[in-house]
Nucleic acid binder design. Structure first.
Lengths: 221, 221
DNA sequence: CGTTTGCGTAACTTACGGTAGCGTAATAAT
DNA sequence: ATTATTACGCTACCGTAAGTTACGCAAACG
């Protein structure tokens, strides 16, 4: 009987388990309150541990945030990269929109962390939003495509930022009013980006098969 | 000679003058550092006054911020409203984009305040960004237009948020890389929104006359 | 001369990031 | 089985920064 774990006792976790637990809790709090308004104390409290634990694992508040952001960025970029890696231009637009919205739906807190203000210490070059990094990557792709198609490659970053801003803002709005399902939002977004307001279809549809759609949707985590 | 104002003496301003001065200083700081990272002390210091002055005029940090945001919102909504009040649909899109970008250019700090994270106390319903209010107003217009054109009015907010997000994100990016002039950015943005990526012109142009353009650009403050 | 108005000094209170030092449970070694 | 060692965790504290307030002063104005 003395060997039985007392369920009232504070659960002692392994180092890595505690690490991931803290990361998840921090993600939720950073997503909801932002970086500055989130205290290390609350993160520790929610994990049922004391503050020094956080410092043991991440060295401090910024360290924790940095790890969190790094993982999240890698994840998003990977998803979008694989979405636009093949297919016709239109398909790439559709797949990118869909991939991003699936990310917003399934990794909501992660997305909100990225879309919130970053701490000044991490803001490279005065840019506060982390999504600019995403936009810059898209810019790269656009610049190449623009050159190939004979367009002004100087304008590529503009369009990249426009599309990223479009999707992220809709994503933020969509996290609160979860009315239309992913495919519908993605189809509208892709329609706007591809056809424009002028030739907007009354009932936009994605050009991908149901099978491909299901395959894309299985990317949770 | 004794009546002459001593230029070394601390300048005593009238109540309203001090008020507007504090508002301008606060706008600059909030734009640059965000709400939480801006201290009342620094605002007061830049105005060469002590902290209690701020409390006399605005009751506190949030009061100051609230007044600031209220004015800025009113201004921006007024500009956009008058931009989309008449003309063909395409013209409205172009004028809205141009009006917003002129606002971003001429009232840069104000725009940055609106696009930054709002204090949790002012976030109605979990929405952190103040630009959602703008998007909601656009939603109203879109809903009406959609109904008239036989489109699904349920999708109107989606498109409204998409366009607002598009413009604001580009606006943020543009405040740092001031390369293309307003008309050029506006023409690209309007082209993307109206024609879409598919029918993107190589060298987009606004459909408004140079006179109308100059008239729009004179809206500084 | 006195009243109003604009303003400063100096404190209080709270909250937070960060640290030092100590305790305790599990595991390995004797 | 007892001891030594490692891993995990806690209490308590410090310094600082920031929001807010109580009180008093001094310049302007009639």
């Amino acid at each position: 009987m003395s060997r039985r774990k007392n369920s009232d006792a504070p659960a002692r976790l392994s180092a890595s388990a505690r690490r991931t637990q803290l990361l998840e809790i921090a993600r939720g709090l950073f997503a909801q309150r932002g970086y500055v308004a989130t205290s290390v104390e609350e993160i520790a409290a929610r994990a049922k541990v004391s503050k020094p634990i956080v410092y043991e694992h991440f060295g401090g508040k910024e360290g924790l945030y940095a790890v969190l952001v790094d993982r999240e960025m890698e994840y998003v970029v990977a998803r979008i990269s694989e979405a636009i890696s093949s297919g016709t231009p239109r398909q790439r637009v559709e797949r990118a929109a869909l991939a991003f919205l699936i990310y917003v739906r399934d990794q909501r807190d992660g997305f909100l962390v990225l879309s919130r203000d970053a701490p000044v210490a991490l803001a490279r070059g005065g840019m506060s939003s982390l999504l600019n990094d995403v936009a810059e990557r898209v810019s790269k792709v656009f610049t190449a495509t623009f050159k190939q198609a004979g367009y002004d490659s100087k304008a590529a970053p503009l369009y990249a930022h426009a599309l990223v801003g479009m999707v992220t803002f809709v994503g933020q709005w969509w996290t609160e009013t979860r009315k239309p399902p992913v495919e519908e939002v993605a189809s509208h977004l892709a329609a706007l980006a591809w056809m424009g307001l002028r030739h907007l279809p009354k009932r936009p549809k994605l050009t991908m098969s149901a099978a491909a759609l299901a395959k894309a949707a299985k990317a949770s985590s």
